[in-house]
Design a protein around this nucleic acid. Structure first.
Length: 461
RNA sequence: GUCCCGUUCGUCUAGCCAGGUCUAGGACACCGGGUUUUCAUCCCGGCGACAGGGGUUCAAAUCCCCUACGGGAUGCCA
């Protein structure tokens, strides 16, 4: 994987990295990370950190590259200048270079002619070079002919992408190049260079591009597009494994109906030949769904481990918040919400006495009865249940008693009011377990507070 | 302009290489119903595609050609 550190790590790069990694792991090969920082102007340490931390978050460890080393380093192109000079001199002594306007060009072999190029808008010298074959594991044999000499070293003395890419692949003994389809046309330049060096050409696999949502615009997805950046999903508390799984499914599938797969399954099933040829469009809804599948499957201990920082970040709990109680709360939430993002809003009232109240729900309740009165009745019915007995069966019994005292079979008249009184909403976890987790003090306090507030407000409804 | 790559439900895709088992399967999204006297989950159902045209063949989503559309490259960016 040979990214240029731009300060962004987007879905497309992540997928290229992932496919390289999966292929290396599947075949028992070596996954190399090489930093293509020849464009000195836009390379910063921060940009590199974004890349490396994104890779690590996704669990894509590299066998050779920055911070881990390897036998064929350095792995930053900015540190390989001497190697490039040496390989340039090899081409020079083979008569395959020439200088023009201070830049050094690669000389194609073939008959020369001049032609007006409408793209460049001027007369240029072209070459009838033999077409080269790009042996691509996804697309088969692609035949393409270069028709213009191209720059190897710029007039400022720096080497160009095409040149360093080939020299590095060659000196790092790269056997497989898995990269985006935007390089497919460039690959003919690369094959020309490999041939000029008398070196074997690596096996290519050019991945289809990930396109923008057509509603948003045309062309390939870029860092500016919504949902394009990996850090965004990390910040929104998506699970790394889920993001990785969702990204893998963009243009690849295991050949059966499996979608949610653990990493071992993916490694086992991964196959370049199964990669899609056509471009894909990224669908955040699908990522959300896969993330939910992962979330649901988590043991509650693990769920608590990933959820704790989400709640801490919002100031809902402190670091010292008791683990058992946290797990009891989360046990109720896990099956109800589809993303960690929703958790703080969904569960705030478990941790704080002040929380938002849905006034529309309150109005509806007020229309159906005297909410203050109903809440007071619940409080009275609950009061005899002791702290130690404060469990779902005991609460259920108390409610049944309340109902029969009013000549009703079921306590459903009181439920919605009580739910609202303790949580400020009409939706949430199963009612009785929620009361059990909230605890007696909290429930009675909130019922009382609710009754008083609504009595003062004159809420007869 | 030229060259290269691509095109199956709204989206991701299976099927295509080795033509018949495809009235084209799955997933997401959406819609409807059920479960839950909350909401969500869950369950059931529905909607919905072979880009178009020619050819080869007894038979084409699958093979060939053309067109259209999409994308990429064409830079002293990567």
């Amino acid at each position: 994987f040979a990214p240029s550190p731009t300060g962004f790590f987007h879905i497309g790069s992540a997928r290229t990295a992932l496919f390289n990694w999966l292929y290396a792991r599947h075949t028992g090969g070596t996954f190399i990370l090489r930093i293509e920082d020849t464009d000195a102007g836009r390379n910063t340490q921060e940009a590199l950190d974004v890349l490396l931390s994104g890779m690590r978050w996704l669990g894509l460890d590299w066998d050779e590259g920055p911070e881990v080393g390897g036998d064929f380093g350095p792995y930053f192109q900015s540190q390989r200048y001497d190697i490039y000079r040496e390989y340039l001199s090899r081409l020079a002594s083979a008569g395959r270079t020439y200088e023009l306007d201070g830049a050094i060009y690669f000389r194609l072999e073939g008959e020369r002619y001049t032609e007006f190029d409408s793209y460049l808008g001027k007369e240029v010298e072209k070459v009838r070079a033999e077409p080269v074959i790009i042996d691509d594991a996804i697309r088969g044999q692609v035949t393409r002919a270069e028709d213009r000499d191209f720059v190897l070293f710029r007039s400022d003395g720096s080497p160009t992408f095409h040149f360093v890419n080939v020299v590095d692949d060659l000196t790092m003994r790269v056997s497989h190049v898995i990269r985006g389809e935007d390089h497919l046309s460039n690959a003919s330049k690369h094959v020309e260079l490999f041939k000029a060096f008398g070196a074997p050409v690596p096996r290519f696999a050019h991945l289809p591009l990930i396109l923008k949502d057509p509603k948003v615009g045309k062309g390939k997805m870029s860092k500016r597009d919504k949902g394009a950046l990996i850090d965004e999903y990390r910040d929104r508390h998506f699970l790394a494994a889920a993001v990785r799984n969702a990204v893998a499914l963009l243009g690849w599938n295991p050949g059966d109906d499996r979608e949610v797969m653990d990493i071992g399954e993916m490694i086992e099933a991964f196959d370049i030949a199964a990669i899609q040829k056509g471009a894909a469009r990224f669908d955040e809804a699908k990522m959300h769904h896969i993330n939910f599948q992962y979330l649901k499957a988590l043991p509650v201990e693990t769920y608590a481990w990933v959820a704790r920082p989400v709640l801490t970040e919002k100031g809902l709990i402190g670091d010292a918040f008791e683990e058992d109680q946290l797990q009891r709360v989360l046990g109720l939430c896990q099956e109800k919400i589809t993303s960690l993002e929703e958790l703080p809003t969904f569960a705030a009232y478990f941790f704080q006495d002040t929380y938002a109240e849905d006034s529309a729900v309150l109005q509806k309740l007020q229309k159906r009865g005297n909410v203050s009165q109903l809440a007071r009745e619940v409080a009275v019915a609950m009061a005899p249940v002791t702290d130690t007995e404060w469990t779902v069966p005991a609460l259920e019994a108390a409610f049944t008693q309340l109902a029969s005292a009013h000549g009703e079979e079921k306590p459903f008249r009181w439920w919605p009011v009580a739910r609202f009184a303790v949580s400020g909403t009409s939706s949430g976890p199963d009612f009785l377990p929620m009361l059990a987790v909230l605890g007696k003090d909290c429930v009675l306090r909130r019922l009382q507070r609710f009754a008083e507030r609504n009595a003062l407000a004159g809420g007869e409804g």
